[in-house]
Design a protein around this nucleic acid. Sequence first.
RNA 1: GGGCCUGUAGCUCAGUUGGUUAGAGCAGAGCGCUCAUAACGCUUUGGUCGUAGGUUCGAGUCCUACCGGGCCUACCA
Length: 572
Amino acid sequence: MTRHLITSAIPYINGIKHLGNLVGSQLPADLFARYQRARGNEVLFLCATDEHGTPAELAAAKAGKPVDDFCTEMHEVQAEIARGFGLSFDHFGRSSSPQNHALTQHLAGRLADADLIYEVSEKQVYSNADGRFLPDRYIEGTCPNCGYDSARGDQCENCTKQLDPTDLIDPRSAVSGSTDLEVRETKHLYLRQSALSEQLDTWIDSKHDWPILTTSIAKKWLHDGDGLRDRGITRDLDWGIPVKNGDKDWPGMEGKVFYVWFDAPIEYIACAGEWAEANGKTDADWERWWRTDRGADDVRYTQFMGKDNVPFHTLSFPATIIGSGEDWKLVDYIKSFNYLNYDGGQFSTSKGRGVFMDQALSILPADYWRWWLLSHAPESSDSEFTWDNFQTSVNKDLADVLGNFVSRVTKFCRSKFGETVPEGGEYGPTELALIDDLTTKIHAYEGHMEAMEVRKSAQALRAIWVAGNEYLQNAAPWTTFKTDPETAAMTVRLSLNLIRLYAVLSAPFIPTASQSLMDAMHTDHDLWPDDVTGALEVLKSGHEFEVPEVTFRKITDDERDEWQIKFSGTRD
RNA sequence: GGGCCUGUAGCUCAGUUGGUUAGAGCAGAGCGCUCAUAACGCUUUGGUCGUAGGUUCGAGUCCUACCGGGCCUACCA
């Protein structure tokens, strides 16, 4: 048995996430967690909300709420939606938790002790009207290069020229529009990542099986120009984790907080502490997942994230961990994803473009989305959501191949034998061939799941469903019933068992539907089928079941067209 | 500007370290079946593998250039 620590990139607090966010981290992480649990492995699957930073403060201000109240509410909203999608976190934490405050301050102290933190005095734009320092992106003005009047302080969107905020002509705050800006001197802490560059490089080099997407981004940062650059880890904000050295004040850093990207990954660890607290466990219970000196040696740690998160997970966070000199678990495998586009453009949280998680659940059950998103996961390149593709895939795979299989088997049985598993008959060559075929196909499915090849796993699962329809066609119980009802009974008995088998195998992808099938079959026997022959004899003759409601209804052309229009604009 | 990813049948994608006639699903065509959500099964039509060169006995696979799509480029997160 392996112990799997699994984390999903933690979604930002400022709004409800769209399907692109979902498929890039939480959903594949859930697939993997559910699969590993089903295989009998011990799993700790953690996620949280990422609550600090300028956008959170601005979103709260826009909502007219204190930022901590806003975060508390949004956390609950996201938690509820996550439950709706069947995301099986062992704990859904918060980066603003007391555990994360303490651990972030502790690690900063350790890094300071190791001489990996130093102070830098720098100039930054301050907005008097907003009463805050502005990140470069939050300053707008006219581009000195092309004259575009809404260029951002870091880069002009129009001519793509990289800018410094002081380059802008007539700069203004993107928050309030105020032109009452001034440049102020401010001190910040920098993490001396450069000192750990070689260690990080060696570590990355040792990861031969990581996706190219993951390693190439890390390598670029390590070797571009002067190599890995040091990074500011503090900000002049009100909302965040106060800059402290352990539990001691940090002279000169009063009123400042840690940068959100410093504390957010630490929440992966702190979240385990939150999990322990929420479940009446001890520190030792969570440390055995995270401390290699306290039992985490045999843990395999896998992170899931979108490609934009890679530098922080391959470099900054490992630098924090390594630099602390403490025995924290380093990630073993990083699964990164490209982006999902929406109907010819990008999903966009800020622009409200695309389908958002709450909207998705309001029109169809989670399993429809889970299936489509996972079977089209943007693994090798960006992929695209279109309503047409969604309708076609879901109708064909879920309704026709799987759903209809369940329907034809259970209804045939009911009409000929009643809602009871029939007895009699013995396996012939057709059944033995099916078992061989299923054994091969299940091994293929397992192989892809272990490797986190999401699309291939979906294809392999679908092939297992198809095998049922092929078998039924060959065995043709509706024909044999006329002359040899015992054989027809055997075919139906096996097919009913196939439904249970499919429910078990499919649960990582479509947990809700799988549970309904288990319920309809009146069974809770959900052990993974290491032996197909045995797995097809779980439901014995005489076992009662019921014909389930339609497992997956089809999406009509009218619905497709309606949704296409409904979601063509922007939200709000 | 720099780095990386990507371009394979109408669509969505597979194609191990270069090795015999380039694969799958969907869509299309034909046949079969009638238990079923007008579902299922079988057969089958589609590709000069972005373009042009090069290396090689042999390239979708390696090299170069070009064209197209995308991401990142360190103060959004």
